[in-house]
């Protein structure tokens, strides 16, 4: 199918919380310039799976490979060192800080004296926002004053600025209006064209049909299957999500 080395391979990943197998022996992979959708109901385990890649959780079992090599990811800092950036569903922004402080949070630009260089960070933020969201003006306000789309563009700018090669987007359009959703879709296409691999977590089938190359469907912590989007219909994808049936399998009583 694809001769390249995958950007990321998650092999036989498992994690349990107090006896509940949130993720049970799941394997997925991602190639450069590819968007892979992760689908499933709430509680299917897709966010949990991806949090093991972003360093928020450490798995009980399984192996993560980045560019074919085994990667040790124990916390978000480790993930960042592999150029894995995550845009969380909850928009992990500190509401009381401005856009620049959020964009550089944990990786501040410093002056020669070792103090944070707010002016330089604002200048960089202005540059990248001019590229991603030219209408963005609120550089001085705390991000609590921003709209959902503006906040999302700050979160995306953060990933893009630090040269993400692997981008994880957890329901990036869940809180957005139609226009803002459109803006984020355009952004995803743009990033894909730049060769970035994207895991797109969603429970919206149309989003996935629109943006993704492949889709991995999860149910009750297990992987149902991974399919090429070109080979399936909306309905087939839906029945994978709802019934946990692979396409082509005869329908049995649920």
């Amino acid at each position: 199918m694809n001769a390249q080395t995958p950007l990321v391979e998650l092999k036989n990943m498992s994690i349990a919380f107090g006896g509940v197998h949130a993720v049970d022996d799941v394997s997925v992979d991602l190639y450069p310039g590819e968007v892979v959708g992760l689908l499933g109901h709430n509680g299917a385990g897709k966010s949990t799976l991806i949090k093991m890649l972003s360093g928020a959780y450490v798995g009980d079992g399984g192996e993560i490979r980045v560019n074919g090599e085994r990667a040790e990811i124990k916390n978000p800092r480790d993930a960042r060192s592999y150029n894995i950036e995550t845009i969380y569903q909850t928009l992990a922004l500190a509401d009381n800080l401005d856009a620049a402080s959020n964009l550089f949070l944990g990786r501040e630009l410093l002056t020669a004296f070792g103090t944070v260089d707010d002016d330089a960070m604002e200048a960089e933020t202005r540059k990248i926002m001019a590229r991603l969201n030219p209408n963005f003006r609120k550089f001085a306000e705390p991000v609590s004053a921003l709209s959902g789309g503006q906040r999302q563009s700050v979160a995306i700018a953060r990933a893009v600025y630090f040269n993400a090669r692997i981008l994880i987007m957890d329901e990036p359009t869940a809180a957005l209006g139609p226009q803002e959703t459109q803006m984020v879709s355009e952004l995803i296409k743009q990033l894909k064209a730049e060769g970035i691999g994207i895991f797109l977590i969603s429970h919206d089938v149309h989003d996935v049909m629109d943006l993704c190359d492949r889709a991995s469907v999860m149910k009750n912590g297990k992987l149902v299957d991974t399919v090429n989007i070109a080979d399936v219909t909306d309905d087939e994808l839906l029945s994978m999500i709802i019934l946990g049936k692979r396409p082509g399998e005869t329908r049995v009583e649920a």
């Binding site: 972003s54 928020a56 916390n75 978000p76 800092r77 960042r80 995550t86 969380y88 909850t90 992990a92 922004l93 500190a94 509401d95 009381n96 800080l97 402080s101 959020n102 949070l105 944990g106 990786r107």
Partner: peptide
């Protein structure tokens, strides 16, 4: 200040 504003975000930012 970041931790005060959103402890989870601070943690996820490393």
């Amino acid at each position: 200040y970041a931790t005060g504003g959103n402890p989870e975000a601070a943690e996820l930012s490393g």
